[in-house]
Amino acid sequence: MKRHKVAIVDSATVVAEGIAAILSRSPRTEVVGIYRHIAEIESIIAAGRVDVVVASVAQYHEIEATTSLNNIPVVGMQSSLIEEDIVRRFNATITLYTSAEDVERIVAEAAEQPSEHNISESHELSDRERDVLVLVARGFTNKEIASELNISPHTVISHRKNIVHKTGIRSVAGLTVYAVLNKLVDSELI
């Protein structure tokens, strides 16, 4: 059975640790880490290491502003009263009173939902993805790539996620080797 990779984002340590303990026991999910803020998970999303995010609904502003989350289901953790229309923006929600079995089920089912913005079925890198890959291989950070290509850092993250999806390679060292073997950059880079 495929185990869905879950990132937990909640600044309330007890809540985050509790959810992690429940999901770590489940054969359907694997917790990749606990984070306090959405911004902390952008790099692991770009690396393709997250299938579903469980995040405090209090962080909905940051969640909506994070373009890379467009492709990732988000389960809202509701620990206080919050407007109903905000709750509806999440793929699913859990509360402090949701049973452990339901938490496991809800998170796994959210991970299995088709995303709103599916990644292209093509395994060929687009021209823009190739540009990003070359800069990644040359050691540029996301910010530097954004500046070089005149795009937003969020768009860079989306491109990187597509690159990981299409090549099956996650580390910068691995992507550099991929770029060299495909003659996108010079072998002197490594």
Partner: peptide, 10 residues
């Protein structure tokens, strides 16, 4: 894990 995965893919 990432590097192990990458060496296998490459």
């Amino acid at each position: 894990d990432d590097r192990s995965n990458d060496i296998a893919s490459l």
